[in-house]
Design a protein around this nucleic acid. Sequence first.
DNA 1: TAGCCACGGATTGGATACAATTTCAACCCT
DNA 2: AGGGTTGAAATTGTATCCAATCCGTGGCTA
Lengths: 246, 246
Amino acid sequence: MTQAPVPLSKTPASNLPVPTTLVPTTPASASHGNASARIAALLRTAILGGEYPPGTRIRQDDVAQRYGASRVPVREAFRTLEADGLVTLIANTGAWVSRLSLAECDEVYQTRDRVEPLLLRYALPSIDEAHMDHLDELATRMERTDQVEEFLRLDREFHLGSYESAQTTVLGDLVRRLWNTTQHYRRAFTLLLDEPAARMVHDEHHMLVAAIREHDSDGAEHILAGHIRRTRLGLARHPEVFDTQP
Amino acid sequence: MTQAPVPLSKTPASNLPVPTTLVPTTPASASHGNASARIAALLRTAILGGEYPPGTRIRQDDVAQRYGASRVPVREAFRTLEADGLVTLIANTGAWVSRLSLAECDEVYQTRDRVEPLLLRYALPSIDEAHMDHLDELATRMERTDQVEEFLRLDREFHLGSYESAQTTVLGDLVRRLWNTTQHYRRAFTLLLDEPAARMVHDEHHMLVAAIREHDSDGAEHILAGHIRRTRLGLARHPEVFDTQP
DNA sequence: TAGCCACGGATTGGATACAATTTCAACCCT
DNA sequence: AGGGTTGAAATTGTATCCAATCCGTGGCTA
């Protein structure tokens, strides 16, 4: 069942067309009509994909030209992204891709630690067999890949996917926001995983699926909380991830 | 020490100038410069103050005229308020004051139940004596008032005030959002409190201050979680609060 | 040489006018 | 009477212009 974990390398398989986010980040990839929503979606996937690293300045005019729109919808998109925690706006000055300090990142993980188990509890009763099989498959594919970007994508699809069947309105959005703000640091941290640490991550994923299969809400909550907590402690051991001075 | 609780009546003392929100809802009452931030702040206090009940439609033109601005900053303000959960935007159609179903409100309270104790834990070490005395005074004033709006204001200042000294960046905002979205239902629910229920609310407030004084993080977390949980269960017993069909 | 101030370019913020798109509801036709 | 259509009203987007603000540069001063 288990597979020898391979240390993850950063080199992407190729410059394949970015598969956008598999689990829609907010509404969906708004494609037609609403320019402001479309621009927000495109910028969001660009930021999450690492195209704009934290601290990067984003200019209204650039974005407007790049996406063939005027500045008004771009400004609205900025406000949306600010609410997502992806962008930091400073009045009369500009927009920057948000950057978290170690303390702030720790805070987000503490919050996730409390909130995601609750969301999973909401979702659990409605997860059907096919969905469980899918989660299992994702966990296995995560073990087998050695591409960071693919791992991140699978991890996101695994966890957010496990919450998908929750019929929640605010909690789901809230959790997606928390994931978005920490996406970049998750990438950095993934690169630092050594073999035993990666082994534990994968084991926890499989244990989580097992608990879900047994409809064991308490068990699933417990495993998930531990999973998040362990990641938080791991990040705290690597403060250098947050050192990127401008 | 304790005071005979008086059933709360809805009649306000008078149409005094609305004292805005004592605990700033987001940045502060932005007064000059940024029109979009100013409009967002004004609309926010208007909505929280019950001036626009849930389900009310808000037109860009009206707001623009009322606050002497063009529609561009109004639209940005809408986006900000949407992120606050105060307004629901529907593309090409308009903006409405958000309305929660019982299930959604329950969801928010479940979330608060998990998140606010954590925030209190962050804040607790930095709460000084003067602050504790202030919290005590607020709890006492809450017992003595019979005005709903004043109770709401004091309750907000008590709880959000107790989190104030937490040096958090995301958690504080998150909790404020959760408070904002449920403000209206808190008002409706407050009117339904009978005497023993009110008594218990007040007792919990005093117990919370006592735990804070003793720097008992676990105890404070526990009391606060119970406080929120009890409110949630109380709301669930009054589904009629959510029945306001358009 | 170090520090401070003023100036000017660049960028954001806002106003206005107008075109485009969408929604919704009344209306007409079969 | 029911279903499709049209048109008013609202939002959304574009274009243009100007004001306000910020930031770096350069020069002046101690």
